[in-house]
Computed example of a mutant assay.
Amino acid sequence: MTDATDGPVKIDRAQQFITALPYARALGMRIDELGEGVAVVSMPFADHLVGDPHSGVIHGGVVSALMDTCCGAAVLSHPSVRSSTATLDLRIDYMRAAKPGQRLSARAECYHITRSVAFVRAVTTDEDSENPVASATGAFTIEAPRHG
């Protein structure tokens, strides 16, 4: 955010963007923080997202979708980005299973920008936030703003 007074407005706009994405809406994603190239996006546990019915562990693809969305939000919140973005590359390291029944939260930081690519790193935790569920690094496009 370029101005602290824009905070709630920018988060509201970003949340509207997320709820417009059918998969993000289906996963119940919510923007918790946004600004200056940093985003925190969370989602609740849901039984229909379980990948292993015996353990109740959420599917890794759900974690991937959360991290991808959070990274994109971090890019879009960077002060020098005035356009849309798309994922070029996202590498995820899964460190442990998320605990069944717990909310997942991803925090992403856009740490370097070139003219056409943004570089992002992220960590996902459950409510036991001392031990990450997964970490990611990624590259995202930065499209030239359209004029006219």
Rank of each mutant, 00 (worst) to 15 (best):
S64T: 14
T5F: 13
G148D: 09
Y94H: 14
G148C: 13
Y94E: 10
C70Y: 03
A122D: 04
K10Y: 11
D128A: 13
M1F: 07
P132K: 12
T141V: 03
A46C: 04
Y94F: 15
I142N: 01
D3T: 12
E36F: 03
K99V: 14
T2N: 15
Y23P: 06
L34D: 01
Q15V: 08
I142T: 05
V50P: 04
P44M: 05
Y111P: 00
I18H: 09
V133T: 10
F17M: 15
C71N: 03
A122F: 05
N131Y: 11
M1H: 13
K99L: 10
I11G: 04
A73D: 00
A39K: 01
G37K: 03
A24F: 02
Y111I: 00
C70M: 02
H54D: 13
L104F: 07
D68M: 09
R121P: 06
A97H: 14
A20Y: 05
H78Q: 04
V9C: 06
Q15E: 14
D93C: 08
M43T: 04
D128E: 13
K99N: 11
G51M: 08
L49N: 13
C110L: 05
Q16V: 06
H59G: 08
Q15Y: 06
A24D: 12
K10P: 02
D52H: 13
A39H: 00
G37I: 02
A106F: 10
S129R: 15
R30K: 14
A136N: 11
V133K: 00
D68Y: 10
A139G: 09
A73N: 02
T124V: 15
D32S: 05
V117A: 09
G51R: 07
G35Q: 07
A65G: 13
T125A: 07
E36S: 09
L34W: 08
T85M: 00
Y94W: 11
I58G: 06
V40K: 11
S83G: 14
E130Q: 15
A118I: 03
H48N: 11
R146T: 15
A73R: 00
A118F: 05
S84K: 12
A86K: 03
R115E: 14
V50H: 06
E36L: 03
V81H: 04
I92Q: 06
S135N: 12
G60P: 05
R82G: 09
L104T: 08
E127T: 12
A139P: 06
G72R: 01
V123G: 04
S116D: 15
D93I: 08
A108F: 12
T2G: 15
I92Y: 04
H112C: 02
T125I: 13
F17I: 12
M1T: 11
A122K: 01
G37P: 02
C70V: 07
D32G: 04
H78F: 02
E109V: 11
